[in-house]
């Protein structure tokens, strides 16, 4: 309504708990008497450019594979095709999931809540949705919300993809996600934004939202989009930091990249061939 009437911004004056907000456009965070505080918090929230966003159509083409050593990273990349996500009831290998879903390629997904190798728990860090789910499954573990704020929320539907900074308190209801993309079929929360608009993010920028072990040497994995809007994912065959990984991906022409779970879970598969593992 504000836009129709020619205003640049507006605010609601309803008082209520932030976590009970109806959506991202109606956040019960500040009443009109606390505007000064809102501006202060806004300045803190955009530090390190965390309000970056990506929105583009998905370009679907043949699935291609390439490998190259770039900036000390043994990169193995798969691009093309149409992406879809899958959440297992327990835990499964990527090869089995590729086979079971009739897919041609796959990579391990995002970070899971229980890292123990013997665990069979399938809870993920952050919200998630697959085509099989009617609504987004929110992350209601409020104790980790402060750490997750502004991490890259990746979503797509049949016509386009987007990456937005995640705001846990206002992204609880499915409706909040639909405001970003009405026909969204898949979403998950990346561990850190590694490359944006073809530029590698700095160590400080990665650590501003990523976990403290982002700079550990691990076999790293990512998902994102190239300059043409094609999905691209890949992993390293050697152990590298997220900073090195980001630099090498930007060098290879990756436009947007978010960090996936890396280390023991790293797994890149094309058909029956395993090309990288943890």
């Amino acid at each position: 309504l504000a836009r129709i009437l020619g205003y640049k911004m507006s605010f609601t004056i309803a008082n209520g708990l932030a976590e009970e907000s109806p959506g991202i456009l109606e956040v019960n965070r500040y009443v009109h008497t606390r505007m000064e505080k809102a501006w202060e918090d806004r300045d803190k929230a955009i530090k390190n450019g965390v309000t970056y966003r990506y929105e583009a159509p998905i370009t679907v083409g043949p699935i291609t594979y390439e490998s190259e050593k770039v900036e000390g990273c043994d990169l193995r990349l798969i691009r093309g095709g149409m992406p879809t996500t899958f959440i297992s009831d327990a835990r499964q290998g990527v090869s089995d999931l590729v086979k079971a879903t009739g897919s041609q390629a796959g990579i391990n997904g995002t970070f899971f809540a229980m890292a123990a190798i013997k665990s069979t728990d399938n809870r993920l860090v952050g919200p998630s949705k697959t085509p099989e789910m009617a609504e987004v499954l929110p992350d209601m573990e409020t104790t980790r919300w402060p750490k997750l704020r502004n991490r890259p929320l990746v979503m797509w539907g049949p016509y386009g993809a987007a990456i937005y900074p995640y705001q846990p308190a206002t992204m609880v209801q499915d409706r909040a996600y639909r405001e970003g993309m009405l026909d969204m079929t898949d979403c998950f929360l990346g561990g850190a934004w590694l490359v944006h608009q073809g530029m590698a993010r700095t160590r400080e920028q990665i650590l501003a939202t990523g976990s403290s072990d982002s700079m550990d040497y691990r076999r790293r994995a990512f998902f994102g989009f190239d300059m043409d809007g094609r999905p691209i994912c890949g992993a390293t065959y050697n152990s590298v930091t997220s900073e090195q990984f980001a630099v090498s991906l930007a060098e290879k022409g990756v436009s947007e990249a978010v960090l996936l779970d890396s280390g023991f879970s790293t797994s890149l598969v094309l058909g029956e061939k395993i090309l990288a593992s943890g």
Binding site: P62, Y65, T84, S88, A90, G93, G102, G106, G271, K273
Partner: peptide, 25 residues
């Protein structure tokens, strides 16, 4: 084994399949 995966569906480029054979672990 992992609880979440990103899968790609589409036609696989023939030359890429050959290249992947060399890198298979």
């Amino acid at each position: 084994p992992i609880p979440h995966a990103i899968l790609l569906k589409g036609e696989v480029d023939k030359a890429s399949e050959e290249l992947a054979k060399k890198d298979e672990i």
